[in-house]
Design a protein around this nucleic acid. Structure first.
Lengths: 208, 208
DNA sequence: TCTTCATTGGACTTCATAGTCCATTCCTAG
DNA sequence: CTAGGAATGGACTATGAAGTCCAATGAAGA
């Protein structure tokens, strides 16, 4: 979408469409979200939808994926760029759980899209995969900082630990969703995070 | 579906429909699976689909969910009913990973349906939730046996540990799918399983 | 053999939804 | 004030998929 010929008014309309679509997808999935319901929710018209997203529904969904990804990252700021102490991890964890549970999200915009979209739209799959990779990268850097500071076993591979944490988030949400309870997510996350504060539990941890 | 007035021939046709639908759903999702493609793949006719599944697509999908659930449980036999030793857990793990990865499943029939169907079909959600609950139950019983045998910390809550393991499976698959690699699933699973063979690592585990 | 009912074939209907098109309105620069 | 392009409204089309219906076939027992 060429953004050069767009006014402020148009920008806001476009954004309104993206956000409403995001909500509907989170609530009803891609298949359960139709251009008509989006149109109704945003008080727009069919022509506007295609004006701002010439690629139709597929492009709209991709834009939603990108935006949701950015929102998810923002929700983890500023800790996601620190994660150099157990306190930082705890605060990061707290913010993340809040992001999912409060305001009844009950699903990961990225993870659930990944499942739904793996098939049917390779371009969307790419957008999702990029978010996932970036996310894992940031977590791995945090784990690396912990390791460099001697706060976690030197034998731990940051990328592996990061993957385990991400898997805990995604899997925890899969189980939390039907229960409408946060505890599965929290249990999974705590378990995955355990290696990061082992120093307080393990045998004579000499570091630092 | 009343099964009383069904011949062997009919039973096999019905089963053929279920299995073909299951494959298509796993590959393309519920939305990407149409009665026409199922009809084509099974060499049946529209009337047969509705003859065996009067409730239409929704009923067919529910039957698929039930059948896939049973298949998944079978793949975990006989270990899922044992899990009283670390060796048993290892063999169970091996069989499960094989079930997902070999023959390119790359997704959990139950978990991925859970994500797709949470919305749109409460009845299906029930079928899925039942499978999940039963699964967690079996795992928790195994953890309980390990605890009773003093092979795992007495402080560990079997249900929590079981949930963490399930979350690792589901989340691991979410990450493995786009990568088309088994390692995220294996890493997540190993991490979740760690408490079950801790006795060989931890400080003088006194339990029992 | 005949009857009956499960099974099958496939055309047809209905409906939801993505996408097109053109007219109209709004805003702003010149 | 006016011309042009962005923004908007909404009817219309095309399509694909679910679901209906009736006729034909096959098999098994009376």
């Amino acid at each position: 979408m060429d953004e050069s010929k767009i006014t402020e008014r148009g920008r806001r309309t476009r954004q309104r469409i993206i956000e409403a679509t995001g909500e509907q997808i989170l609530a009803s999935g891609i298949g359960g979200t139709t251009l008509d319901t989006v149109r109704a929710a945003t008080l727009t018209s069919k022509s506007q939808l295609f004006h701002y997203f010439p690629g139709g529904k597929a492009e709209l969904v991709r834009e939603v994926a990108g935006w949701e990804g950015r929102q998810l990252f923002e929700a983890q700021e500023p800790f996601i760029h620190d994660l150099a102490s157990w306190e930082s991890w705890e605060q990061w964890r707290s913010g993340l759980v809040d992001y999912y549970i409060s305001r009844g999200r009950w699903a990961c915009p990225i993870g659930s899209l990944a499942t739904q979209a793996a098939m049917s739209d390779p371009e969307l799959e790419q957008v999702i995969a990029d978010s996932m990779r970036a996310w894992r990268e940031l977590l791995a850097e945090g784990v690396g900082r912990m390791r460099d500071a001697g706060l976690v076993a030197a034998s731990a591979d940051p990328m592996t630990v990061a993957t385990v944490i991400l898997a805990a988030i995604q899997g925890g949400l899969v189980l939390s969703q039907p229960e409408r309870a946060a505890w599965p997510l929290e249990a999974a996350l705590d378990s995955a995070l355990a290696p990061l504060h082992a120093e307080s539990l393990r045998e004579g941890a000499t570091p630092a």
